[in-house]
């Protein structure tokens, strides 16, 4: 058994175990982390096959972005009592079984009848990234554009659905805040200094203001 084959079996074993962990783990965070591990080993397998661009892209997109958002959401939930979020088996089991059967049938059909699926694609001479780019932007350019527009519309729809202006919400606008200068907020006024006599007369008549209370008993009296 060559070293590469050994690596392949090790990664496959980890992949299967972590995939099982995704559905078997009690804690949602643990199953999400198992999924991360599954993505990682998957990427490793792809790199073993010579598809390093795909492998790295898988990690960047799924591990680096998608799963992080997943974890974000899961960690925000109250997961202290995992037994409470147990699903009702009677409701969930039939669709699950149905989906499982369909997926299994599809895979079986592909493996049994698909002629090109069994042959490994030859590793292109000019490097994986270039070959992939050429295939994507020459041969499949229209499908790529369609996918891009679909994703864009999905994004726009999601934003339109969730982004409601709350009239009560108060927001700061940093660009306005940064544009503010001292003169806009503060006015410096030049005043002549008050004279001593004015102060003294104030003090002498100060009793009036204090003694002006309705009951006639000033603090100073």
């Amino acid at each position: 058994m060559s070293f590469l084959a050994l690596l392949f079996y090790i990664f496959s074993a980890i992949l299967l175990a972590s995939a099982l962990g995704v559905i078997a783990a009690r804690h949602p965070v643990h199953s999400a982390l198992s999924l991360v591990l599954a993505f990682f080993t998957m990427a490793a397998l792809w790199i073993l096959l010579g598809a390093e661009f795909l492998g790295l892209a898988l990690i960047i997109i799924y591990v680096g972005a998608v799963m992080v958002f997943f974890l974000f959401v899961i960690m925000m939930l109250d997961t202290r009592h995992p037994e409470k979020i147990k699903a009702n088996w009677r409701v969930t089991l039939p669709p699950l079984v149905l989906i499982g059967i369909i997926m299994f049938a599809e895979l079986a059909m592909l493996i049994m009848h698909g002629s090109h699926a069994r042959e490994a694609m030859p590793v292109p001479e000019a490097g994986n990234t270039l070959a992939l780019g050429q295939a994507m932007f020459d041969r499949y350019i229209y499908s790529l554009e369609v996918v891009a527009i679909l994703l864009l519309s999905a994004m726009v729809a999601a934003i339109a659905l969730t982004h409601r202006k709350n009239p009560l919400a108060k927001r700061q606008d940093p660009s306005k805040q940064m544009a503010v200068k001292a003169e806009d907020r503060l006015r410096l006024v030049k005043m002549t200094a008050e004279r001593e006599e004015d102060n003294e007369s104030d003090v002498s008549s100060g009793n009036v203001s204090l003694g002006n209370k309705p009951d006639g008993k000033g603090i100073s009296s």
């Binding site: 390093e52 661009f53 790295l56 892209a57 990690i59 960047i60 680096g64 490097g127 994986n128 990234t129």
Partner: peptide, 10 residues
């Protein structure tokens, strides 16, 4: 490696 930039991003 060919895609070292991608590797660092990853």
């Amino acid at each position: 490696i060919d895609a070292s930039l991608l590797y660092i991003m990853m």
